[in-house]
């Protein structure tokens, strides 16, 4: 018994319990600080949008008030009616949709093809070519506008849809993002495709594209938003309202000197902006995962 006791006494004292590692907040958990940041971000981004939509229902006497009046007296659609009567908003909306979809699709196809060639084809100087592609991101659009305009005019493409779309089809941004993503794809898949007798087009569209959905979604959203919002080039090459896009159409509602009719402008701007807000809301998850795809290559 004493032996047992002795043994027990001789045992080293138990080590103090290791301090519990702070539990990483589960996805979905958020401390008050994070909530505050999120709420602030939503307010900073959301309040101007909300103001824009509400202002579209207001008459001048509701807009020019002190203190600020947030809510309109009624959901008066007269600003929308006036905007659509002053400029052909319906036609411009269709122009914007068509030009955006065709332009973004073309940009993505070219980006995919270019990135595929840079990663999977054994072409000489491909690194130099990639650097050259990236370098085009450093050239401001304004520098290329006059030569582009001259060429477009010589081709007789002023006031045409292809005059708006074609000069903007090449996308260094898309090529860069696709290339970075393609570098992360396992080579074994392409080897299997080759054994299957797949050519380049089949490899690209049957094997690579399905594995690149998030990146394609990300490039797609960025491209669609860019095309939708583009102003300077469509403005320069169109002077016919029936060929104009929505952002250019807004120009027709602006006033030099006189009082801006902000209710009218906000109604029209809502029509221009909200489709893109919807696109973002629908594709936001894919956009985030796509933009981060290929970020870690180690």
């Amino acid at each position: 018994m004493s032996l047992t006791a002795t043994r027990r006494d001789a045992r080293p004292a138990p080590a103090p319990p290791a301090p519990e590692r702070p539990r990483r907040p589960r996805r979905g958990d958020a401390g008050p600080g994070r909530y505050a940041v999120m709420v602030l971000s939503v307010l900073v981004l959301g309040v101007p949008l909300l103001w824009m939509v509400l202002a579209g229902f207001k008459q001048p006497d509701e807009l020019y008030t002190v203190p600020l009046q947030w809510l309109p007296h009624s959901l008066d659609l007269s600003n929308y009616a006036e905007a659509t009567s002053l400029v052909p908003m319906g036609t411009m909306f269709l122009n914007s949709v068509g030009i955006t979809l065709v332009g973004a699709a073309g940009e993505m196809l070219l980006g995919l093809g270019c990135a595929y060639a840079l990663v999977f084809l054994d072409i000489p100087f491909r690194r130099a070519i990639f650097v050259a592609v990236i370098f085009t991101l450093l050239i401001p659009q304004q520098i290329t506008i006059i030569p582009n305009y001259t060429l477009t005019a010589e081709l007789g493409w002023i006031n045409t849809y292809h005059g708006i779309v074609v000069p903007g089809l090449a996308s260094a941004f898309g090529t860069f993002l696709f290339r970075q993503h393609f570098l992360t794809l396992p080579a074994s898949i392409l080897e299997a495709a080759e054994l299957d007798g797949a050519g380049h087009w089949r490899k690209l569209f049957q094997f690579i594209v399905p594995m690149s959905a998030p990146t394609i979604a990300a490039v797609g959203v960025v491209s669609v938003v860019g095309k939708w919002n583009e102003y300077l080039w469509p403005f320069l090459v169109t002077d016919d309202p029936d060929k104009m896009t929505l952002p250019v159409g807004l120009t027709l509602l602006q006033k030099v000197d006189g009082m801006q009719d902000w209710g009218l402008l906000m109604a029209a701007t809502s029509l221009v902006t909200l489709p893109m807000v919807v696109v973002f809301l629908v594709l936001q998850r894919r956009l985030v995962s796509g933009l981060t795809a290929g970020a870690v290559t180690g």
């Binding site: 506008i145 305009y149 300077l232 403005f235 320069l236 002077d239 309202p241 120009t251 602006q254 030099v256």
Partner: peptide
Amino acid sequence: TGGANYDEIAQRFQA
């Protein structure tokens, strides 16, 4: 409608 303001007209004219 060549632009929303004098500068935009000038941009279009220069181009």
